[in-house]
Simulated assay, not measured.
Amino acid sequence: MKANILVTILLLFMSTIGFTQIKYEGKINSKYKFIKMDDGSLKYVKYDKDNQTIFIHNIDNSLWRSVKLPLPKNHLLDEIKLISQTTFNKDDKVELVYSCVEYLAPENYEDPSESFVRINFTLNVITETGESLLKVDSSNEMEIIHTEGQNKMLIYKHVGESFNNNDETLIYNLP
């Protein structure tokens, strides 16, 4: 009998520990992008368009780092693809992969064959000091893969003026 009472009390104690209350911590505006870092921590990114600066915040809203983006002339930020500290260098500097876009209007608006706006993408890899590690024109997509004990970066490059042409995948070995 004592064993049954002891087991019942133990089960009640375990169930109350397992079902603790969910506690609200706050909110972050949905227009900010979340990035999972190499160490598993989450950060969110704000972009100041006027100063071309990325602000990387911790989940508790404290500023972690800020990075000035060296956007090419007439380009706008398209998307932050990756934020890392160990993917490209082994120092503690933050590295960013981002794409930017330039919209090119046709030179002759009256020519029906040139009635569309061309889009020019650029994929950039930089350090937090603005040092360029890689720039790939005509690209806005990439991924990091782990294969055969090595890390590779695949960059998908648009060849030609439309997305239906013979696109290429550029393969880079990472340290």
Results as ranks from 00 to 15, higher is better:
Y44Q: 14
Y44V: 14
V45E: 14
V45S: 11
K46P: 01
K46S: 12
K46W: 01
Y47I: 12
D48N: 15
D48T: 08
K49F: 09
K49H: 12
D50C: 04
D50H: 12
Q52F: 03
T53F: 04
T53I: 08
F55Y: 15
F55M: 13
I56R: 00
I56A: 06
H57D: 11
H57A: 09
I59A: 10
D60L: 10
D60G: 10
N61K: 15
S62T: 15
S62M: 06
L63Y: 08
L63M: 12
R65I: 09
R65L: 06
R65H: 13
R65F: 05
S66G: 00
S66D: 07
K68E: 05
L69Q: 03
L69E: 04
L69V: 05
L71R: 00
L71H: 11
L71W: 13
P72T: 14
K73R: 12
N74M: 06
N74R: 10
H75F: 14
L77W: 04
L77K: 00
D78G: 10
D78A: 10
I80L: 15
I80Q: 06
K81A: 13
K81L: 15
L82N: 12
L82F: 07
I83P: 09
I83A: 15
I83F: 08
I83V: 15
Q85C: 12
T86H: 11
T86V: 09
T87F: 08
F88P: 15
F88E: 13
N89F: 03
K90E: 08
K90C: 03
K90A: 07
D91M: 06
D92H: 04
D92C: 05
D92E: 10
K93N: 11
K93I: 06
K93R: 07
V94S: 09
E95P: 05
E95G: 12
L96R: 00
L96K: 00
S99C: 10
C100H: 02
E102T: 05
Y103T: 00
Y103N: 04
Y103M: 03
Y103P: 00
L104H: 03
L104N: 11
A105K: 06
A105V: 02
A105C: 01
E107Q: 09
E107I: 09
E107P: 01
N108H: 05
N108Y: 05
Y109F: 11
D111K: 02
D111R: 01
P112S: 10
P112H: 03
S113W: 06
V117F: 01
V117D: 01
N120F: 10
N120Q: 13
N120Y: 08
N120D: 13
F121S: 08
T122D: 07
T122G: 04
T122R: 02
L123R: 01
L123P: 04
L123Q: 04
N124H: 12
V125T: 12
V125H: 02
V125I: 15
I126K: 01
I126E: 09
T127K: 07
T127C: 12
E128G: 11
E128N: 12
E128P: 07
T129F: 05
T129D: 14
T129G: 08
E131L: 08
S132F: 07
L133P: 14
L133T: 15
L133G: 12
L134N: 06
K135Q: 14
K135A: 10
